[in-house]
């Protein structure tokens, strides 16, 4: 019974003001074991979850942003980042952590997991999903 569904994890909040970002990432890490088709979307302030250079030394909380680097090893390599959300916040793809995976279908070539997408592209991606978990 190899049911494969498309799961979308919708992240719209930044990392530390509320618990949603870290607990969303915890779900994604567990989800990897279920061999479903997993995508993550970063919209609105969610884009701040994966910006480069986060440092939590001053707030006494765990800097879990490093954990995003592990996703590629779990075959989670579709991280869709809203182009409009980046632009509204004065950010660009170069501000995002270089998250990568090794493509087993292409001689383990290292490829970027980050896909900056427009609203129209995101619309098409969302329409294909079977389950959407919002955080």
């Amino acid at each position: 019974m190899a049911t494969t569904k498309k799961f979308m994890y919708l992240n719209r909040r930044s990392s530390f003001g509320t618990v949603y970002a870290i607990e969303s990432l915890e779900v994604v890490l567990i989800a990897a074991a279920f061999e479903q088709d997993v995508s993550l979307a970063f919209i609105d302030d969610g884009v701040y979850q994966i910006v480069e250079g986060q440092n939590t030394d001053g707030i006494g909380m765990k800097n879990f942003s490093k954990t995003f680097h592990a996703l590629g090893d779990y075959d989670i390599n579709k991280l869709y980042v809203s182009k409009e959300s980046l632009e509204e916040r004065g950010l660009s793809e170069s501000d995002i952590m270089p998250l990568v995976y090794e493509d087993e279908d292409d001689d383990w070539a290292e490829k970027s997991s980050i896909k900056v997408v427009s609203n129209d592209e995101l619309k098409a991606i969302m329409s294909e999903q079977d389950v959407c978990l919002s955080f």
């Binding site: 049911t3 569904k5 799961f7 915890e26 779900v27 567990i30 989800a31 074991a33 279920f34 479903q36 079977d130 389950v131 978990l133």
Partner: peptide
Amino acid sequence: LGQLIEAGI
């Protein structure tokens, strides 16, 4: 948490 994913499936 696996129970959540399983519920989704």
